[in-house]
Computed example of a mutant assay.
Amino acid sequence: MASPAVPPPADSDGLDRPAQRARRERILDAAVALGSEGGYDAVQMRAVAERSGVALGTLYRYFPSKVQLLVSAMAREIDGIRLPSAERMAGLTPADRILAVLSRATKVFQRDPNLAGALVRAVMFADASATAEVDQVTQRMNSIIIRMMRGEDGDPTPRDIAVAGLIAKVWFVSEIQWLSGRTKARQVIDDLELVVRELVH
């Protein structure tokens, strides 16, 4: 199971941590299902509570707002991106490894436009109350890119970190443009390839 984007809150009902995590996963599953069915507007907190089988008050203890809930769901989706095997990574350049992962991430998001739109809108709407959740999304995406960039070759340099952040921003902006109909799906990959091959050698 992927690490949670935000640690679950302490419960007053005496449930142990595995039970809390299981409940949190059910809540995220419900939010993702509703987002997939009807996009951002379909993810209503009462509907999430009903579908996940938790009380509305319990839901708000885990996720104080819809935005925090959906941004946490996006962090979990990023955690689920399948990375190349060690054997395949060994045969690819750093740029090729990054592009392989970002292509997979792009295909996953574009396969479900309703859900992608819900998750991206949540990140765009996030204010200071969702800083921790947005930071988790950023850290997860940057971490994947840095891992593909460096492989097992020690700690990242300041330039590696800056480049990873820039590539992640290009990916996110490209997804926004695709969701708004301003660019085609294939163009997202083409733009990423241009940026990655320019920055990563």
Rank of each mutant, 00 (worst) to 15 (best):
A118E: 09
M149Q: 14
R17T: 06
D96H: 07
L69P: 10
V134A: 08
S129G: 11
K107T: 08
P7T: 03
A86S: 14
G165Q: 05
Q110N: 02
A122S: 12
F109G: 03
I146H: 04
D96P: 01
S12C: 06
L192S: 05
V196K: 01
Q44K: 15
V71Q: 04
A47V: 06
S174C: 09
G80C: 01
V200D: 11
R24T: 10
F63M: 06
D79P: 00
A75T: 12
A185L: 07
D13Y: 02
A49Q: 10
I81D: 02
A164R: 02
V173G: 05
G91F: 00
N142H: 13
I146N: 01
Q187W: 06
Q20A: 14
D190H: 08
R88V: 13
S12N: 06
V54F: 04
F63E: 08
F125I: 01
A168N: 04
P156A: 11
A130C: 10
V173Q: 09
A162F: 09
R111T: 00
F125Q: 12
L69Q: 08
M124T: 07
M124L: 12
S180H: 06
E175M: 15
I189R: 02
A132V: 14
L166F: 14
L15M: 11
Q20G: 08
A49R: 09
M141E: 07
A49F: 07
G80A: 13
G35W: 04
V120I: 15
R121C: 01
S180A: 11
L166Q: 07
R159P: 00
G39M: 06
S129A: 15
L15V: 12
P64Y: 04
A22R: 14
R61S: 14
V67S: 03
I189V: 13
A2T: 10
N142P: 02
D160H: 10
L99Y: 08
L179H: 03
V6M: 12
S174D: 14
R186P: 00
E77R: 14
M1V: 14
D191C: 00
E50D: 15
V195E: 02
P4W: 04
T106K: 01
E37S: 14
V67F: 01
G154T: 08
V163A: 07
I146Y: 03
V195N: 02
R82L: 05
G181W: 00
F125N: 10
D96R: 13
I167W: 03
P64E: 04
I189P: 00
V163P: 07
S103K: 06
V67L: 00
L166T: 14
R121W: 02
D13I: 00
Q139M: 04
E193N: 06
F63P: 09
S65N: 05
V32R: 14
E37W: 00
W171G: 08
V108A: 11
A126V: 05
A73E: 02
R147G: 15
D127W: 03
R111L: 03
Y60P: 00
E37H: 09
R97D: 09
P156T: 12
L92C: 10
D96G: 08
V120D: 09
D127V: 09
N114V: 04
T58P: 02
R61V: 04
A33D: 10
S129H: 11
L56V: 12
D29W: 00
D135N: 14
